[in-house]
Design a protein around this nucleic acid. Structure first.
Lengths: 233, 233
DNA sequence: CGGCTTCTACCGATCGGTCGGTAGGAGCCC
DNA sequence: GGGCTCCTACCGACCGATCGGTAGAAGCCG
């Protein structure tokens, strides 16, 4: 079952009309992702769904509540379309490919809720933030553990699974900021390239690659630090 | 010479006291990066530098002007600490390593201006945004061309240089969202891991790796699409 | 005194949110 | 069928708070 509409602390007036409520969330998500949560007024959201502000408040409890609902919806999507589907793959390499491909497609398909999910967390209340962050951590844990299992099978490069999982996420999330579907690469090509970059960066295939002057974990610094900015006044 | 304080369209009252102006920018950058630009009031910035709002306005022309100055400062830093330093490296592989290492260190050292740079662009005016976006594009072009030159030397994997450059950027930018310097990994270790993940994902070393069912560029889709969300009602 | 620098006091605009009210369809009674 | 009630869905008008920004005087320095 989806984790939204749980009875925790928020009765919400979503009972009015579930379809309309979702429609509002989708519209609001689009605007929020374009202009930012705080830069968007409730009136703009209302206009987008052809309602007045007062009419809109018939369906939502407040601006913050609207943001929270959008994020819960986004996490639902992520869990259903990425995690659940990836778990159907027995082979771990195939599972990782599924994660990358579906996650990337989700990011560029619905150019809305997912990006809000990472950019507007501060707009939530304490309790709401805790809930969303918890689900996000679960998601990251899933990716990290997939990498750990791959490592146990000896199929992973010598990379830290945490850095790997976050690096992967960062690369994929960032796609929504630069990729335009009308550009040189179509969606399939993009997913191909992203998958290839990520996988050949994570997977050890056939030959053991020579590590670039492997620094035995501690203190190596490839490069001297840029003097860490300026001194505090 | 730094590209800020150029005479374009904004005389600005930075002539008052350059040191104080920078101090204000740094303080504002920290708050903006924590709470977001629109969610931060001018009063909060003023408090942070021990001034009243009116006192602060002696140094800045407006909230938007403040944001713009922060971004110019951030681009200055990026160009001086990453691009300029990387250009000192003749060897292309070393240059790429320098880019990754210095960029990453910059992101986690000053947890301030750089993240604003990517998250608050919408808060700028048309002209200001054009200026910043132009400089950002130059920066991306630098990374992309470094990859292209590596490809010309046959040292690059078969990856699209655009996707590679943005993938790299995304991975690094994302670091600021999850990495805590008090955690399991210290800064040097983090930089090591990021470098290794990025490089072994981008560089072809020694053995030619077997591509994972290389899809000849067009139509392959590793994974069937997630049916692109729901049907419109 | 005169020029920086910083303050107190205030403005108009806009924000999120609320209130009283109502159009109009559904159900019901007769 | 016609009148009565009720309820969902929505709106115009308004509220207090806060926002970015300004005018003008006061403090401080030489």
């Amino acid at each position: 079952m989806p984790t939204s509409t749980r009875p925790s602390a928020a009765p919400a007036r979503a009972d009015r009309d579930p379809g309309k409520a979702v429609e509002i969330c989708v519209a609001a998500a689009r605007i929020f992702s374009e202009k930012g949560f705080h830069a968007t007024s409730i009136n703009e959201v209302a206009d987008a769904v052809h309602l007045t502000k007062a009419g809109l408040y018939y369906y939502i409890k407040g601006k913050q509540d609207l943001l929270f609902r959008i994020m819960e919806l986004a996490m639902d999507t992520l869990e259903q379309e990425v995690v659940a589907k990836a778990l159907l793959e027995e082979d771990l390499v195939a599972r990782l490919r599924t994660i990358i491909a579906r996650y990337t497609r989700l990011i560029i398909a619905g150019r809305n809720e997912l990006s809000i999910l990472v950019n507007e967390i501060e707009g939530l209340s304490e309790a709401q933030r805790a809930q969303i962050v918890g689900r996000q951590r679960e998601f990251m844990r899933f990716i990290r553990e997939t990498l750990d299992e791959l490592a146990a099978e000896g199929k992973l490069n010598d990379v830290d699974s945490t850095v790997g999982a976050y690096g992967l996420s960062g690369m994929i999330l960032w796609v929504s900021r630069w990729y335009r579907s009308r550009g040189r690469l179509d969606v399939d090509q993009l997913v191909d390239h992203v998958t290839r970059i990520a996988l050949t960066g994570l997977l050890e295939e056939g030959c053991g690659r020579t590590k670039p002057a492997r620094p035995t974990r501690k203190k190596s610094s490839t490069e001297k630090k840029p003097s860490t900015k300026k001194a505090p006044s």
